[in-house]
Write a protein that binds this DNA or RNA. Structure first.
Length: 855
RNA sequence: GCGGAAGUGGCGGAAUUGGCAGACGCGCUAGCCUCAGGAGCUAGUUCCCGCAAGGGAGUGAAGGUUCGAGUCCUUUCUUCCGCACCA
């Protein structure tokens, strides 16, 4: 029979489904393994880049299943999100319709690849049964003060009169009409992730199964920095008649309080609350405000293009440096960030490059207060700021102290005087989750004129996303236009009230779906804690690096929220993380717009699922980026066909020999022993490569080596090599053929079918069946190896003279170091080299090599 | 600028603990088989010299440690990725 993979795909996929082969239940008597690939946004079509990740996970899942683990391997859909809504605005197809259609298509693609998912646990985040628990959790977080509301700026298109997501801002303009985007302040919901900043940072040290790269990215993202807050009092002017007089001081954050004697001016962010008040007091408030507004608008556009030039202007106000008592000017600067620290900085041009550039540009004073290496620094001639730590000069009572000591003393001094204190500042900000969008989880809150913000009672959850027929892309939040949705009675006072019309960021959906998979149909709670206790943490999590920060940090945050709610007992959800590399085509990431998408279905039709799976695993280690190659895929197909012919060639001989196996191991000849050794060593290598090294490409090459040896072994046996022609016939053992050879072949083919099955499950199942087995390869059928058999009897050991290999010795593996040395010196090739010279040193690495130093 | 990863044949890559560099695959070459081959089987394939035996060179570059370095150390170059006025 010829190798027809497409038939095998169909046959085995339907068998797996009908036998519920991959469905699992909690079973505390067995070790569990939770294997998860990041769930998918249902964009419509999976390309081979996406698919690579699922295959990697499937190899792990199938291997662990065969190793006897109770394997949870679920899949689902990150189904809410902007693209579906954008498509609805442009094409008029309702997000619900397009999303469900896309899910159906992509699910078919994954099924055709034979990925071993527990499909009965499938979930989509747009299911009310799922997002209900987003709402439930939101309310719990609201109760604990972890969800709160405050004003924050959004992108606003004045032409469409609507809020834009960051992705909808293209080159600083609206994605639809190109109108320049403005910022506008709205009341929005936030999650207080900063409450866990320290813990999220510290716990990275315990994530030993994560790539160091990802941990570094998370640490940088959290961005802990130690420093101090110090108040610079504003110089009093004529008493202000205004009732809300500006705050009498400017608080700055600095990590270099040791340089404070050199603080010759103060800079405010354009967003700083004091700026508006200072504008009122300025001689020309209109132009003041216009300049500030210019800075704020510029900031957005400039983020895209890179660096922007430093700009600023003098507010006219002055503040007092609390350490020197000097009067310093207060400026507004475009590069000071409103959302970091206090939104104000003390500028020390001598010791901070940014301040230095600003001072030079605007001719502000530069004062040196730290000498890096003991040599004096001249303020007027320095070309750049001296940022290094050093010894303080010209700093009053602190002069002469090293920077680090000075920082401690200055913080103590500031604290004693009530003008500052040491603080820890994080770069991590609270997570803004409000989206003025339709296709997401409605935020379960009610705004009552009497009672303020009231959560929807648990009994009334879910707040179902109402049907919206028309998506214009204009105006308010889509939900705000649905009167039946918006108008509601206040749960507390019963009076008329309005529902919250914002929906949640879809990162909320993806921050806990891995818990839900443990118990996806629970209607009473987000999940049964006992089920999660059994299945979690995820033992193997794989996905793209693009999620290294947001998704993974939000998930770690949610894990701690669930922990503090008493639902899970530990705060790290992912034990091991693998970030798989992308698949490139013509050197670029696959994308529809580039037109370089490789469609898995086309490959499936040509070569079958197994060849595609095998190729993608073989081409490179999982973390690496790979370039797609049609020729490489063909090579994998050829390999599978080669294995297939080998099985076909031998299977009837193997079937007839049943019963003689094992008995014959003692009477093997040398070639049979070597073949058997190769079989057992291959089992060892493949097992280690998958489970320990997770280097799936070398696992495949180990199997290829085995097959190459089996062909040679087959050639040597009387039956000849399984050529294309002869493969079509069932070969009987030729006259005089040794039964031992058949036994060795059977052991090898059975091992091979099983080792191959995580990679090429359809072909492997079929081969297993054709070798005479009625059971499926699914459960607990991983081959074991005999370490004694796997060990070589003889090895070839190189002999080096002065670092160059001059001869090779074939020796027993058990040979002693002394014997090796003697054999090496007695070797004719070696003795002729060393004749007449002095052997100064002999190094023997047991079982590895002999190295002679000769003069 | 800061941080991270990586540089190995024509190509993808392998080398697990400092011990035979180039496994395995692609591509290419030759032979066999065949009516035919874009199928299959066998052999070859880092570069240079040589009919061969063999010799020499060789893991981005330059040094170093070592009997021995792709692997460890120092310097340096290049590429990719992340962060990027975070005070």
């Amino acid at each position: 029979m010829d190798y027809r993979p497409q038939d095998l795909d169909r046959k085995w996929q339907s068998r797996w489904t009908s036998s519920r082969a991959f469905e699992v239940e909690v079973d505390t008597s067995r070790p569990k393994f939770y294997c998860l690939e990041m769930f998918a946004y249902p964009s419509g079509h999976a390309h081979v880049g996406h698919v690579r990740n699922y295959i990697i996970g499937d190899v792990m899942a199938r291997t662990k299943r065969m190793r006897g683990y109770n394997v949870l391997h679920p899949f689902g859909w990150d189904a809410f999100g902007l693209p579906a809504e954008n498509a609805a605005i442009k094409g008029g197809i309702h997000p619900e319709v397009s999303t469900r259609g896309n899910i159906a298509h992509m699910k078919g693609q994954l099924q055709r690849l034979g990925i071993s998912y527990a499909w009965e646990r499938e979930l989509a985040t747009c299911d009310t049964e799922y997002y209900k628990w987003n709402q439930w959790l939101f309310i719990r977080m609201f109760e604990k003060g972890l969800a709160y509301r405050r004003r924050s700026s959004v992108n606003w298109c004045t032409s469409c009169n609507t809020v834009l997501a960051n992705e909808q801002v293209v080159d600083g303009g609206c994605w639809r009409c190109g109108t320049p985007v403005e910022t506008r302040d709205l009341e929005q919901w936030f999650f207080r992730i900063t409450a866990y900043a320290d813990e999220l940072l510290d716990a990275t040290a315990g994530l030993t199964g994560w790539p160091e790269k990802v941990l570094t990215m998370q640490r940088n993202w959290i961005g802990r920095s130690e420093g101090a807050r110090v108040k610079f009092p504003l110089e009093s002017r004529a008493p202000s008649p205004e009732p809300q007089a500006p705050s009498p001081e400017i608080e700055v954050f600095t990590t270099r309080i040791d340089t404070i004697y050199g603080a010759t001016f103060v800079l405010l962010a354009p967003e700083h609350p004091l700026v508006a008040a200072l504008a009122d007091r300025s001689p020309d408030p209109a132009s003041f405000r216009q300049t500030v507004q210019g800075f704020r608008a510029q900031d957005r556009a400039a983020r895209m293009s890179g660096a922007i030039e430093k700009q600023g202007f003098d507010t006219g106000a002055r503040a007092v440096n609390p350490f020197t008592g000097a009067s310093v000017p207060v400026w507004v600067a475009n590069f000071v960030l409103g959302e970091y620290g206090t939104g104000a900085v003390m500028a020390v041009p001598a010791h901070d490059q940014r301040d230095f550039e600003f001072a030079r540009k605007f001719d502000l004073p530069i004062k040196v207060v730290v000498t890096p290496d003991g040599r004096p620094v001249d303020a007027s001639s320095m070309g750049e700021a001296a940022e290094a730590y050093g010894t303080l000069v010209d700093s009053g009572e602190f002069s002469g102290l090293p920077s680090a000591d000075a920082q401690k003393r200055m913080i103590a001094s500031a604290k004693a005087r009530g003008i500052g204190e040491g603080t820890v500042q994080f770069r991590l900000k609270d997570w803004g989750i409000s989206r003025q969008r339709y296709w997401g989880t409605p935020i379960p809150m009610i705004h009552c004129p009497e009672d303020g913000i009231v959560p929807v009672p648990d009994a009334e959850l879910p707040v179902v996303l109402p049907h919206v027929a028309q998506f214009s892309g204009r105006g308010d939040s889509p939900l705000a236009q649905v009167a039946e949705f918006v108008n509601v009675r206040c749960p507390r006072c019963g009076g008329p009230a309005r529902r919250e019309t914002d929906t949640m960021d879809t990162f909320v959906d993806s921050s806990w779906y891995f818990y839900r998979f443990a118990d996806p149909r629970n209607n009473a709670q987000p999940f049964d804690p006992a089920a999660v206790k059994y299945w979690l943490p995820v033992d193997f999590y794989s996905g793209g690096v693009e999620h290294a920060i947001l998704h993974l940090i939000y998930s770690r945050f949610f894990a701690r929220v669930f922990r503090d709610l008493g639902y899970v007992d530990q705060g790290e959800p992912f034990k091991q993380l693998l970030t798989q590399g992308m698949v490139l085509k013509d050197g670029a990431v696959m994308s529809k717009s580039k037109g370089n998408v490789v469609d898995p279905d086309t490959m499936l039709q040509k070569f079958g699922a197994d060849a595609l799976r095998l190729y993608v695993m073989f081409v490179a280690p999982p973390e690496k980026e790979v370039e797609w190659s049609d020729a490489g895929l063909e090579g994998s197909y050829r390999f599978l066909a080669r294995v297939w012919r080998l099985v076909e060639h031998w299977r009837s001989a193997v079937a007839r020999s049943t019963g003689t196996r094992e008995a014959a191991w003692a009477s093997l000849d040398a070639a049979e022993r070597a073949m058997r050794r190769k079989t057992h060593d291959t089992i060892r290598r493949v097992t280690v490569d998958i489970e320990e090294r997770q280097q799936l490409n070398t696992a495949v090459s180990a199997m290829m080596e085995l097959v190459n040896d089996l062909y040679a072994f087959s050639e040597r046996a009387v039956t000849g090599a399984p050529t294309h022609k002869s493969g079509e016939e069932e070969m009987a053992p030729a006259a005089g053929e040794r039964p031992e050879t058949v036994d060795v072949m059977r052991e090898a083919l059975e091992a091979l079918a099983r080792l191959l099955s995580p990679f090429a499950p359809h072909s492997a199942e079929e081969m297993w069946e054709r070798l005479g087995h009625a059971d499926s390869l699914n459960a607990a059928s991983w081959p074991t190896y005999d370490a004694v058999v796997a060990r070589a009897e003889e090895i070839v050991v190189p002999v080096q003279i002065n670092g160059k290999v001059r001869s090779r010795l074939t020796v027993s593996v058990d040979i002693s170091e002394q014997e090796m040395e003697q054999l090496a010196l007695a070797d004719p090739a070696i003795s002729s080299y060393i004749a007449g010279k002095t052997v100064r040193k002999v190094v023997v690495a047991k079982g590895r090599l002999v190295s002679l130093v000769v003069q």
